[in-house]
Design a protein around this nucleic acid. Structure first.
Lengths: 214, 214
DNA sequence: TAGATTGTTAATCGATTAACAATC
DNA sequence: TAGATTGTTAATCGATTAACAATC
């Protein structure tokens, strides 16, 4: 659909979901138009930044009125790749895996976890949040049979790289990695890391810096 | 202790934990020195970037030999604010909260969750991963009595802002926010967001962009 | 010594912000 | 019309990368 041949920068990509969430709220409140200044007020992001982000997302607005809510939602969803539903699998049904299996935010992104894998025989065959836990030996079979492209790694760090290798070989193109380790994959696979120790460290650093400068 | 009066940039702050993790491994393997090129090989980060990061962290190395493992660990821990232990509380004992209560990564950061809070009467009084679930009405009391400075918000988005207001008023200076909403606080409080919907959206966007350009 | 590595200074690149024109 | 808002072009800022000197 044209519109977005331009590549979207990572900082912008990170802000888009916030706009989308707020605009969806407005839509359900019956609003028809939204302006950058309005979004700026809500999110705390500078109006000019919002405008630039909208531009990158391929949204087109009308001077004075702003952006059509329906249209801008479509633009943002397309830019974020939420426009087509996706099925995902999860590897590692520990504490974090369990929480992710019950996480509702996935629906907002059009993602549905169809199965989870673990190596613990005691877990295999059980259901967590209505999702079946399968043996890791079935990994490739399920990926290929259901043509899965998206995988979530929620294992300890040690097996993460090997799991990633198996996923890539089986045809996975996107890996959401919660394991605190840097995973190396070929260029065809996209890895998005959520390293909680990194995030916590950044918080601690900022807090103690603030304390020092007081 | 001088060393680090210079403020550390966010991108650098994000990379430091990776170096720290790998250098700790080296230490336990008996290594005495580590070079930027070595760290680059392991992490995939450019050597010059590693060197610049080390500089920001206040690490001092020797030409030809590299950085003393013991010394650089101290430097990184100090830069990351991991040098003093911290007690934290958690608000919202749902799926995610439960997982966080059992998360081992906290120890690596010197953080210990001493209690969790929830509004659900059925949960109050129970123990998750050996941590007591307390009533939200006791929030301020516990924070002040134990002089807690760090809080983790793992509630749904709706109550998050109000919780944050209560936390700030009670003396919390650092908030780790897992709720998918932008929290507004005064300048004295540091908020670090872990918005899973944002992270997942970024992944989806990258995957679908890659698909288009093939 | 020679060579590898750190430390430092400069160049490049990209994101943010500012200024202003266009338009409904 | 007047004013608010988008769209666009330019300026600023900061992070990354490159080049090279210093040093063990």
């Amino acid at each position: 659909m044209s519109g977005g041949m331009v590549s979207i920068s990572t900082p912008t990509l990170r802000r888009l979901p916030h706009y989308l969430r707020e605009i969806r709220k407005m839509k359900s409140n019956g609003k028809q138009y939204v302006s950058c200044t309005k979004l700026s007020d809500i999110t705390g992001i500078l109006p000019i930044t919002v405008r630039k982000d909208m531009q990158q997302a391929g949204a087109v607005g009308k001077p004075k009125t702003g952006y059509d809510v329906e249209q801008v939602i479509v633009a943002l969803e397309t830019a974020l790749g939420l426009d087509n539903d996706r099925e995902a699998i999860l590897i590692g049904a520990g504490n974090l895996g369990y929480a992710l299996l019950g996480y509702k935010g996935f629906n907002l992104c059009g993602v549905d976890i169809i199965a989870a894998f673990d190596s613990d025989i005691k877990k295999i065959g059980q259901e967590y949040h209505d999702k079946k836990i399968l043996s890791l030996s079935m990994l490739e079979d399920i990926i290929e049979r259901f043509n899965i492209k998206l995988a979530i790694i929620a294992t300890p760090p040690e097996p993460a790289q090997k799991i990633a290798d198996r996923l890539a070989a089986a045809g996975i193109t996107g890996i959401w990695n919660f394991s605190p380790v840097i995973i190396k994959v070929s260029d065809e696979v996209v890895v998005q890391n959520v390293d909680l120790t990194v995030s916590l460290s950044v918080l601690l650093s900022r807090v103690s810096k603030k304390k020092k400068t007081d």
